[in-house]
Design a protein around this nucleic acid. Structure first.
Lengths: 159, 159
DNA sequence: GGTGAAAGCACCGAGTT
DNA sequence: AACTCGGTGCTTTCACC
């Protein structure tokens, strides 16, 4: 759970892989002027340490017909039910992430849907969960994503 | 921007790649009882169509020392400044995503930080942006993520 | 649109410095 | 810890179906 020591070479390797996980290790090796074997060993170590949890595709959900994003704040009848309700919410398809939060809402989640009508169906599923008193929906009109590469650079420059 | 026709084989290929982008195409081919060349061509087509935007590593930010997540709701003095402020917010490091939203807040963003003290620094940067009247922070106490695989399955089963 | 084979490379472990 | 090297096996293309 603690920090893990990464040196400049590790940063550079992550930096290249974060943009394209299928880039050949030989290419990485050439750019960093080290051997491909070294790249291999370092990646393996970062995997073993759990820094690299896995790899995934970045899909264009808009092109798949899912261009609707909303955040939903949830108010509970009773905060002792928080954990239970979080689990119920997580089971709903198209809820991509849910958080227990401080502040205004008890639980806070993100919904990805086809359109308003589809989102309505999903939010009705939410409202039906026992223990939920009320929900408040915020529809995303425009999204501005900061890619992982920038976050990584911020992290590396701070360490 | 519209939908794109994916058949069952494409679904299966995405399904395997979404969990591990470095899985050999020969393995996918074996499981689906098609040739590796076919897998290659289909992946290429999905890339060209923009369905697959890229691939990325899944990192453990907690292990890197960044275990703090908060959502910040932003109120503006004047909604005509919304676009401008969104851009300023997106420039702040550790802001991973920002949305223009309907509802309570004008803008809504997610912050990833080391700890409360670090988050405070970031939120102060937000508060300093011209045009922002007030912010409201919700700290994540617990996160429940629904992986991409589940979202994919939901999407495929609906199509 | 799919196949299968072949050429070119990449991966990754073993042995060395 | 990193390098080189070599066997194994993956990727990618192309003529053919």
């Amino acid at each position: 759970m603690g920090k893990f020591k990464l040196d400049e070479i590790d940063h550079q390797i992550l930096d290249m892989l974060i943009d394209n996980t299928r880039i050949p290790f030989t290419d990485i090796a050439k750019k960093l002027v080290i051997s491909a074997g070294t790249v291999h060993v370092r990646v393996k170590k970062m995997e073993e340490a759990g820094i690299i949890k896995g790899s995934s595709l970045t899909l264009d959900y808009k092109k798949l017909g899912y261009s609707f994003i909303a955040y939903v704040g949830v108010f509970l009848n009773n905060t002792s039910q928080t954990k239970f309700v979080l689990e119920r919410i997580s089971e709903i398809p198209f809820v991509t992430v849910a958080h227990i939060t401080t502040g205004k809402f008890n639980i806070f989640c993100k919904v990805r849907a086809k359109n308003t009508s589809h989102a309505k169906d999903i939010i009705f599923l939410l409202d039906d969960i026992e223990g939920i008193y009320r929900t408040e929906t915020m529809i995303s009109l425009e999204e501005s994503i900061n890619d992982k590469k920038r976050l990584m650079h911020s992290i590396f420059n701070e360490l």
